[in-house]
Design a protein around this nucleic acid. Structure first.
Length: 832
DNA sequence: TAATAGAGAATTTTT
DNA sequence: TTCTCTATTA
């Protein structure tokens, strides 16, 4: 059987009713999907052939143009739905695109089999051609948890101390390589020292192990497909012919592997349209290469570049503020957002004494907005979002909102499918569906506790290995040969029997998956269960009979009931799928749980999670140097890290439609310790004309307790006396009297030590870097827990310290103080 | 083998 | 502060 004897099926699928209908309903010249597009958008829609780069600023109707383009492709008969490859990053984006294309064409867009995320599309491809990379088509996809467990095993097997060299670190190292499309052999020598010189070797072992397990991780999905394309010229050409038009959303977020993948597929016809915004590239840390979008015209000579610059979302002041900030970045393609709407309110800036105060103020402000403040229409909770840099910032707001009874919702917290109970339950399903899924088996053998501890599990391992079978099979052998006796043995027998029985109920849902179905449509014909048990019932039975439900029922911790609730939700989610395997596939690729409830709620989320969203009112708290921009980003990636943070600021501001409020606090509790904070350098980059400095009312409650806190303050500490260059908004905020506080003054004084901050961030960077990583080998340092010691090694922000009392440790630099200065570290400015 | 206590370490963002 | 992991004890 050749690779392509199913091409008839492909052709047949092409005559979709969607395309037919699109053609029929699109009169020449006045296609409905073109209505209301501005000239730039229309240009982007009409330029169907050849490479197109659509530079779409925030709020410029990017999705609008993208979907219209798809509609146009179909309506003009240029491409049939299944000849369009449309890639997104998130499932949400894919879903939205599907819906909107459907809406434009006046009918559900079911016929677009190749609209999906990079990962989903790669899974589809890889299932068809798995054998070309030594996998079976029913390979499992590991999530991070599985990955870490596997890596830990390898690390331990190598005799490496997994405390000092944790699996997670190796995991991210490997992910990084995979993002760059590097196989173990291709890892550059500069990286060979990584992970105690063992990184590359372990990477190789990991890949071997994955193959043995018939599994792959997220990165592999891309890499395997790339390899298949590279090694099978005819196959690649076939797909190049099939995918006649390629569209890519959020192109600025693509990593090297994704870029290579796209380039391979587009190499023939070059009909590739990439949409993105270099100013919104905020995923560099996970491998995204802004360079991809910056380089587009070089990669595809003769590319048409279309700029979408008319903004339909935000007011003039908000746009101006955002533009002012982003202008500080170098290496941009450059866009100028404009609006013909109103100027609206200026961006509001306010400083607070500490983080709690900030949360309190935001809460009050939100309540006030509900009634309509300052002559503005009321803004309800649903229309308000608080966007933070790091998730731990959310706690202060959650606490505050809980006390005042303000309903809120957190987006992007611990994900549903990452919760322990859900992962356990899923592991059961996995073993039932694929009995040789060893990782899943390992997870559940002794969950709930069955008296099968380390020793018993090792016996199973040995049995499996010496017979060359899966762990489950090994376990069965252990039971039969009585290698494991006693209570554990009986329990194990029950488990093994149960798994076999449950598998027997995996009825007619197990349908032969052929390439034909694969190509035509994802929706699968329901195949009635001959044995009369639906997969939902089966799932319930598995959870009950395995004792897992009971395990949580007997649990006396406060989380117990919640976990049971989650399990119920899981079972409910199953109803939307035809069978267990379909569900598992879905879950391994999709990690979002959206539950939209009726009650209006304020949204609390990270800046990253907010990309692509918009709200009438946005709060941007915590604009303090070190927090935002994040110290870590700057330490790890220097100038480019800072620029990415600045893009994050830009993303944050441009989420706002009408009101944007930026705030910062002078003191913040970090890991239970009070720290004084400096206002973010981004605040000084806000164009003054578009910002209004607010004064929080009645802040002057904190009297007394200030004695001795002035220690270390310079004579020129008063913010008013200091002559700083540029438009120092935070200084203005300081003059608003709120900052006549010791913490604030000390900050000013400290800042004074390093001289006036310059507008060029390059300079500011150096200064800060010096201020932070002030340790070198031989320095005597002090650690809160370990006491005094000497620096013996420096690796980035990790320092090796030989402590006088506590022995040698590896510690993060920020937990250290130069000996002799430890007393002034963080006390003294504690409010109250 | 399981439960518990206590230590030790550490905070970004996630398809 | 809070979590996770380890060592200890039952």
């Amino acid at each position: 059987m050749t690779q392509f004897d199913d091409s008839d099926a492909f052709e047949a699928a092409a005559t979709s009713s969607l395309a037919a209908r699109a053609m029929a309903t699109a009169p020449q010249g006045a296609a409905p999907y073109m209505e209301g597009l501005n000239p730039a958008q229309e240009a982007a829609v009409r330029q169907l052939d050849g490479p197109v780069l659509m530079l779409a600023g925030a709020g410029t109707g990017k999705t609008r143009a993208l979907t219209a383009r798809i509609a146009h492709l179909m309506a003009t008969g240029t491409a049939r739905p299944n000849e369009i490859l449309a890639v997104t990053f998130t499932n949400k984006a894919a879903r939205e695109m599907k819906t909107r294309v459907g809406a434009l064409l006046g009918q559900p867009a079911e016929g677009m089999p190749w609209l999906g995320t990079f990962h989903a599309i790669c899974v589809k491809l890889l299932r068809r051609h798995a054998e070309l990379v030594g996998l079976k088509s029913n390979f499992t996809i590991l999530d991070m948890d599985d990955q870490n467990r596997l890596l830990k095993q390898l690390i331990v097997a190598e005799g490496i101390d997994d405390k000092r060299w944790p699996a997670r670190g190796l995991g991210s190292l490997i992910d990084g390589w995979k993002n760059r499309a590097l196989t173990p052999e291709q890892v550059p020598s500069a990286d060979h020292g990584a992970f105690n010189n063992q990184g590359v070797k372990l990477y190789g072992q990991y890949q071997t192990r994955l193959k043995e397990l018939n599994a792959c991780d997220f990165g592999d999905l891309l890499l395997h497909v790339i390899r298949i394309f590279q090694e099978n010229e005819d196959l690649l050409q076939q797909y190049q012919r099939w995918f006649r038009y390629i569209l890519v959303d959020e192109y600025q977020d693509t990593n090297v592997a994704q870029y290579l993948w796209l380039r391979l597929l587009a190499a023939g016809h070059k009909n590739i349209c990439c949409v993105g915004d270099d100013d919104q590239s905020i995923y560099g840390w996970r491998g995204a290469e802004v360079g991809n979008i910056l380089r587009f015209e070089k990669d595809f000579p003769g590319a048409h570049v279309v700029r979408l610059e008319q903004n339909y979302r935000s007011t003039g002041h908000i746009l101006a503020a955002a533009s002012g900030v982003i202008a500080g970045n170098r290496g941009r393609l450059g866009k100028t957002l404009w609006t013909d709407g109103e100027d609206g309110e200026k961006v509001r800036l306010i400083g607070h004494w500490d983080g709690d105060e900030e949360a309190r103020w935001v809460g009050e402000e939100i309540e006030a907005m509900g009634h309509g403040t300052r002559g503005m229409d009321p803004i309800g909770p649903n229309d308000i979002a608080i966007l933070v840099r790091a998730s731990h910032q959310m706690r202060a707001f959650e606490d505050r909102f809980l006390t005042i009874g303000l309903p809120y919702r957190v987006i992007g917290g611990p994900r549903f499918y990452e919760r322990m109970e859900i992962r356990d339950a899923m592991a059961y399903f996995r073993v039932v569906v694929s009995p040789d899924d060893d990782l899943a088996f390992e997870r559940i053998v002794n969950t709930p506790k069955r008296g099968l501890g380390d020793k018993a599990q090792q016996t199973i391992q040995r049995m499996a290995r010496s017979n060359g079978v899966s762990l489950l099979e090994g376990a069965r052998l252990c039971v039969e040969t009585q290698a494991i006796g006693g209570k554990g043995g009986r329990e194990l027998r029950t488990l093994v029997d149960g798994l076999a029985r449950w598998r027997g109920h995996l009825n007619g849902g197990l349908r032969a998956v052929g390439p034909v179905d694969d190509l035509i449509d994802e929706e699968v014909e329901p195949v009635g269960g001959q044995l009369g048990m639906s997969h939902v019932e089966l799932a319930e039975i598995i959870l009950d009979e395995s004792g897992y439900t009971a395990h949580w029922q007997n649990d006396k911790t406060p989380e117990g009931p919640g976990r049971l609730e989650n399990l119920k939700e899981l079972v409910k989610a199953l109803e939307n799928f035809e069978n267990l395997q379909g569900f598992l596939e879905h879950v391994s690729l999709i990690m979002d749980n959206e539950q939209d409830d009726q009650e209006p709620k304020v949204t609390l989320m990270t800046l990253h999670a907010a990309k692509g969203l918009e709200f009438p009112a946005v709060f941007l708290p915590g604009w303090e140097d070190g927090l935002f921009p994040s110290q870590r980003s700057m330490d790890e990636s220097g100038q480019s890290g800072l620029e990415e943070e600045r893009r994050l600021a830009y993303v944050g501001i441009t989420r706002a439609e009408k009101v944007c409020t930026i705030s910062f606090a002078g003191n913040r509790r970090v890991y239970g310790q009070w720290q004084s904070q400096m206002p973010s350098r981004f605040i000084d980059e806000l164009p003054e004309d578009h910002v209004e400095v607010l004064t929080p009312p009645g802040l002057y409650g904190h009297q007394g307790g200030m004695g001795g806190q002035m220690r270390g303050m310079g004579a020129s500490a008063s913010p008013v006396e200091r002559d700083m260059a540029g438009s120092n908004l935070h200084e203005k905020a300081a003059r608003a009297d709120v900052y006549n506080s010791p913490g604030w003054k000390r900050l000013q004084a400290r800042q004074g030590q390093y001289g006036t901050r310059q507008p060029t961030e390059a300079k500011a960077m150096t200064i800060d870097a010096e201020a932070i990583s002030a340790f070198s080998i031989g320095d005597r340092v002090f650690h809160q827990k370990f006491g005094y010691g000497a620096v013996v090694s420096v690796e980035g922000d990790k320092l090796g310290i030989e402590f006088e009392k506590a022995g040698s440790k590896h510690v993060v630099g920020r937990f250290l103080v130069a000996a002799g200065q430890e007393s002034g570290q963080d006390d003294g400015d504690v409010p109250f």
